[in-house]
């Protein structure tokens, strides 16, 4: 906040990086082959997944180990509705996915935040998440362990004109626009009253409680917003991958946003996005080293944790600070 003007060049770097990323995602279909376009679509949704997860993790320090349950709830709810009532406008099926995610997060949030904290919160959400994973795998309406197959990409009907999203890269751009919208909303929450209150709670829980702030209420708000946005990301995924299986509710999928946040740096808004992009790059570049993938990904993760506590963005900020002026205080969040 009190950064001096000499750091202008450095302050601009994040903005330039952001603009470059935006441009890269916007133009992927023009320069990349099909596999990469598909991957970029999934990556954007994973970024939203991780950023929404970080509302809880980064702002309150609570590790929700069942976030994939919301992702799966959104994906399954919208996919189920669109196959059950194919004539419904796509926006409604999407909203239905978000709604189911919101309800589930109210339920789990009320229970988990009320009953547990710290590592217990993590394991309780893990157990509830695994329960939902198992239940999806047992329900015939949701295709049991085999999932829902052949999910069609929708038509967007605007009355005057229609956009058939099954053609070419149209659905990619829908994901692009929707993800951008959700990221802007998340940015707004993170930097708004709720975000500021939560980070104050994280730093000074007792003092804030003293001021008469209902700490749990605020955490519940964040939990529900996080769950809803995650569910919307899931709902957008279903028509993109055209098949969803219970794997997206599995605990290993819940581990992904945690990984992204820690990799990129959870105290910064953009940290999880950086983590997701770096991780996807790592996985994609090692995909043909059959049998070596675990060793390479595992080794790289271990290196980041040991050599860069605070994640990639945290380390960059630290380096930047050292270069600028070693005496200066903590750098501000981007």
């Amino acid at each position: 906040m009190d950064n001096n003007t000499t750091s202008f060049g450095f302050k601009a770097t994040p903005l330039i990086a952001l603009a470059l990323c935006f441009a890269a995602f916007a133009t992927v279909p023009f320069w990349a082959e099909k596999g990469l376009v598909f991957l970029a679509g999934i990556l954007m949704l994973q970024i939203v997944f991780a950023l929404s997860f970080n509302l809880i993790f980064g702002l309150t320090g609570l590790v929700s180990f069942g976030q994939a349950a919301f992702f799966a709830a959104g994906a399954y709810a919208s996919a189920w509705l669109s196959s059950y009532a194919p004539d419904l406008p796509f926006v409604l099926t999407l909203a239905f996915g978000g709604l189911v995610g919101a309800l589930l997060s109210v339920l789990i949030g009320m229970v988990a935040l009320h009953r547990a904290s710290g590592i217990y919160f993590a394991i309780l959400t893990l157990a509830l998440g695994q329960l939902i994973y198992t239940l999806i795998g047992k329900s015939t309406a949701l295709g049991r362990e085999d999932g829902l197959i052949g999910i069609t990409r929708p038509n967007l009907n605007f009355g005057l004109f229609e956009i058939d999203l099954s053609r070419g890269d149209d659905y990619y751009y829908l994901i692009f626009v929707a993800s951008a919208g959700m990221i802007v909303s998340l940015w707004w929450v993170w930097h708004g009253t709720l975000g500021r209150t939560l980070s104050a709670i994280r730093q000074e829980p007792e003092r804030i409680r003293f001021l008469g702030v209902n700490v749990r209420r605020y955490r519940e708000y964040a939990f529900v917003i996080s769950g809803t946005v995650t569910a919307l990301a899931g709902a957008l995924l279903a028509p993109w991958s055209q098949i969803i299986t219970p794997m997206i509710a599995h605990w290993s999928y819940s581990a992904l946003p945690i990984l992204f946040c820690l990799l990129g740096g959870s105290t910064r808004f953009w940290g999880p996005a950086v983590g997701a992009i770096v991780f996807a790059g790592l996985e994609h570049s090692t995909r043909n080293m059959f049998g070596m993938a675990e060793l390479i990904v595992g080794g790289a993760l271990l290196f980041v944790v040991l050599a860069m506590p605070g994640g990639i963005l945290g380390t960059i900020a630290l380096l930047r600070q050292k270069i600028l002026s070693p005496a200066e205080g903590r750098p501000s969040d981007e």
């Binding site: 082959e33 596999g35 991958s241 055209q242």
Partner: peptide
Amino acid sequence: PDTGTVAARELIGEGCNMLLGCVSSSVALA
């Protein structure tokens, strides 16, 4: 299934319009 779809799309992008293999049904269905 999702890794399989990425792989298939990538292969198609490389000009392989003839795909073969697959162990699990979920990947084949995807």
